[in-house]
Design a protein around this nucleic acid. Structure first.
Lengths: 200, 200
DNA sequence: ATATATACCACACAAATGTGTGGTATGTCA
DNA sequence: TGACATACCACACATTTGTGTGGTATATAT
């Protein structure tokens, strides 16, 4: 993971403004940057952009309005400060190990087309760490394998989240909670669980 | 939740192209839309934009290049197809209850500045559904209360994820696993757990 | 002393982009 | 028939936007 190169305070401000505007869905024009930062000349802004490009933080397309992009290097990342050893803590605070982008954490580079969400209700998957109220992100039409957690359509036309198991060539569904018996009826796998999100 | 109004096939195509380009971080110009869709006149594209604006799917700013926005109504959402009753399934498939935007699910409208991530290692929080390998999103400098799960800095300068408990006016930390004893030593709350994300 | 980087401005010009007006053709509804 | 909506095109024009050239001034490094 490359570190961010040194930026002068003003360069930092320009970069932050660009980041902000991109976050608001419309990258700024050169003149908009100048107006925000108090520069009276477009040339000044171009000098800053040139510096940011040279430092590898910004990319541009020629002759296209607002065509300013942030590179990987400059795009916002959430720092992973350490691995929490939930059992025995063993990592010092402030030791930044790397970065994850919010996108990567969330859905990665999946297309959205074949993804949907289900809110989990009940405790039948509690031993797999899936709790009542969690949001389950499901990828449709997957190649679901033995032991994958899947969303399955049951005979009564209802959906459930269970672990897919095969036993002597036949698939069935298992809860992750001893209080729930396995399901041997007919079912159709709708999708595979790819992500669980829980908000507190 | 409003439903999407009826769109002609071409209007749908225009909308999709705009959505696509916004996804790639740069909304299109009128001429870019025309070129993509095969319209030879800017007027044609303007007619389509007018229709989409009238149907409440698009917003624009005057005299600003690329200033095309999708409204809430048109912006992409992950459908919540139902609440999974992980215990007893009780909801029909395809009954779309509403939508969540990816942003909402993930971090919501939090600023990123005071948020960081920790990867959980170990099983001390397993009874709270937090597993080895999960990513814990932590908000710094929070008002952490009794029973919140917090990231805490211990005396040996290490970080741990535990539940904050108060007993007769004094705070201590508790694991969510009977095999781990409570921690009564001095500690400092770094932040409060706001989100857990698990990828399969 | 010279080079190099930062930190700006002015201004002309070209290209991209949005706006406005006015067309044609086709079909539907009353 | 007339009114209206959809579905386009042509083209002039204004504005925005990017580009290019050429400045000034200050500080630091070699």
């Amino acid at each position: 993971m490359e570190k961010k190169p040194y930026l002068t305070p003003k360069q930092e401000k320009v970069l932050n403004f660009i980041r902000e505007r991109i976050g608001e869905r419309l990258p700024p024009t050169i003149r908009e940057i100048g107006k925000e930062l108090g520069f009276k000349s477009t040339g000044t802004v171009r000098d800053y952009l040139k510096a940011l490009i040279q430092k590898g933080l910004v990319r541009r397309m020629n002759n296209k309005s607002r065509a300013i992009e942030l590179t990987e290097r400059a795009s916002f990342k959430i720092p992973i400060i350490g691995t929490i050893m939930a059992g025995k803590p063993n990592l010092a605070y402030e030791e930044i190990q790397g970065y994850v982008s919010a996108d990567d954490l969330f859905l990665g580079r999946l297309g959205f087309d074949d993804v949907f969400a289900l809110r989990v209700k009940g405790d039948s998957m509690i031993d797999a760490g899936i709790l009542d109220g969690d949001v389950a992100i499901i990828k449709k039409r997957p190649d679901a394998n033995n032991n994958d957690i899947v969303a399955a359509l049951l005979e009564n036309n209802e959906v459930t989240l269970k672990r897919l198991r095969s036993k002597s060539g036949k698939f069935h569904l298992e809860a992750a909670n001893v209080n729930y018996p396995p399901i041997f009826e007919e079912f159709k796998v709708i999708g595979r669980l790819i992500t669980v999100i829980r908000k507190y």
